[in-house]
Amino acid sequence: MTRNTAEAWLPEEWETSKVVQSIQQISAVESLSARIPMGSDTKHVPRTAGMDVAVVAKGGTYGEDTSLNDEVLLSAVKFGKAVRIAEEDIDDSVANIIDAKMVGWGKSYAKMIDNASLAVSAASNGTTIPFTSLYQLLNTTDATLSYTGGANITTASSSGAPTYSEFSTAIGLVEAGDYFDPGAMVAIAHPAFRKSLRGVVDDQHRPIFIEGLGGTPDTVFGIPIRWSLGAKLAATATSAPTGRALMCFVNPELMLLGIRSGPESVFIDGRDGLSALTDESILKMRARRGFAYGHPNGASILVG
């Protein structure tokens, strides 16, 4: 991508940017979530517990629904980094070092946004823990929503691979809920599950894992799998989590991704201001995002 020396944030072109393409390929959250435009740092998004239905007699009175109506709050957090680049590297290199740095940032951001949204195991503090992750949401009791913390989390009992029963139990927790949509459900899983899934069969020796062919996705129990390197437990949001691998069964319609700005970058020429003393230019990259999952009863997690 060509950079001007003007100090202004330049948004990445959604259709053509290599940065955006790499983010979409790596991040399940960025590619699957319902994207909610944000005109400010915070935005309230309606959440409903559904709506009942009943038979109405001819000329009869319509009964009134009493399902809970409330909202979730999206708070935009900035993910960013700056890098100093020597003028010699810009002028002399055959490869485009600015493009390379931008794509590298995009890949790290893609893993971090997934980790922050799905797998951080602590309450949000708005900085090192930017959001209430799906894992933390499912670990927290919410009497208003009639949800008990941990109810939709299955933890593998063996230090080896999860068993058929554990995979089946995990998906069964969301299948039994009001938010199960067989046409929309997706499993977001760390690639560490691939090896163990290949050996899991049911009582008729049929594999539960089918590897996709010709561009079709891999599936588990017939549900498409989206692989995510960020789907590992971590104490704080990171692009390189090292905890236990997760497989999250989710409804993408409930994954709410607030879009405040970005991905975008600014190039600060090394010949301007104090930076002129070092013959170095500065490239800054950022994206501002908020995230919330709509309802804990609409997801389940298997901890591998």
Results as ranks from 00 to 15, higher is better:
residue 91 D to E: 13
residue 41 D to M: 06
residue 114 D to R: 13
residue 265 S to K: 14
residue 137 L to H: 01
residue 10 L to D: 00
residue 171 I to T: 11
residue 195 K to F: 13
residue 32 L to W: 08
residue 149 G to F: 11
residue 284 K to E: 14
residue 113 I to S: 06
residue 143 A to M: 00
residue 149 G to Q: 14
residue 178 D to A: 14
residue 269 D to N: 13
residue 264 E to G: 05
residue 184 A to E: 11
residue 86 A to V: 00
residue 259 I to F: 02
residue 249 F to P: 02
residue 264 E to H: 08
residue 109 Y to A: 07
residue 19 V to S: 09
residue 245 A to M: 09
residue 46 P to D: 15
residue 59 G to K: 02
residue 209 F to Y: 15
residue 176 A to K: 13
residue 89 D to E: 00
residue 49 A to T: 08
residue 73 L to G: 02
residue 271 R to S: 11
residue 141 T to K: 06
residue 91 D to F: 07
residue 47 R to A: 13
residue 201 V to C: 00
residue 134 L to F: 12
residue 285 M to I: 08
residue 83 V to T: 01
residue 226 R to P: 07
residue 132 T to R: 13
residue 145 L to M: 05
residue 79 F to S: 03
residue 127 T to F: 07
residue 85 I to W: 02
residue 26 I to M: 01
residue 221 F to C: 05
residue 280 E to I: 00
residue 34 A to W: 02
residue 187 A to W: 00
residue 272 D to V: 11
residue 130 P to L: 04
residue 217 P to W: 04
residue 242 T to N: 14
residue 283 L to I: 08
residue 238 T to M: 06
residue 24 Q to L: 15
residue 216 T to R: 10
residue 101 K to H: 13
residue 113 I to R: 02
residue 97 I to F: 01
residue 206 R to L: 13
residue 9 W to C: 04
residue 269 D to H: 13
residue 71 E to Q: 07
residue 181 D to M: 02
residue 160 G to T: 14
residue 202 D to I: 09
residue 72 V to M: 07
residue 109 Y to K: 04
residue 1 M to K: 04
residue 23 I to T: 08
residue 294 G to V: 04
residue 12 E to F: 03
residue 153 I to H: 02
residue 174 V to M: 15
residue 129 I to G: 05
residue 28 A to T: 09
residue 136 Q to D: 10
residue 129 I to D: 05
residue 102 M to P: 00
residue 254 L to F: 15
residue 195 K to P: 00
residue 289 R to S: 14
residue 115 N to E: 03
residue 126 G to R: 14
residue 258 G to Q: 05
residue 84 R to T: 03
residue 149 G to I: 11
residue 144 T to V: 01
residue 273 G to Y: 03
residue 234 A to L: 12
residue 169 T to A: 15
residue 109 Y to S: 04
residue 107 K to H: 05
residue 48 T to G: 10
residue 205 H to F: 15
residue 296 P to T: 13
residue 89 D to N: 01
residue 157 S to R: 13
residue 201 V to S: 03
residue 304 G to E: 01
residue 22 S to L: 11
residue 29 V to D: 04
residue 215 G to Y: 11
residue 117 S to G: 12
residue 118 L to V: 07
residue 29 V to I: 15
residue 238 T to E: 06
residue 19 V to L: 15
residue 20 V to H: 09
residue 51 M to I: 14
residue 301 I to E: 05
residue 147 Y to F: 15
residue 36 I to T: 14
residue 218 D to E: 08
residue 95 A to G: 03
residue 198 R to G: 03
residue 41 D to Y: 03
residue 201 V to A: 01
residue 26 I to K: 03
residue 171 I to F: 03
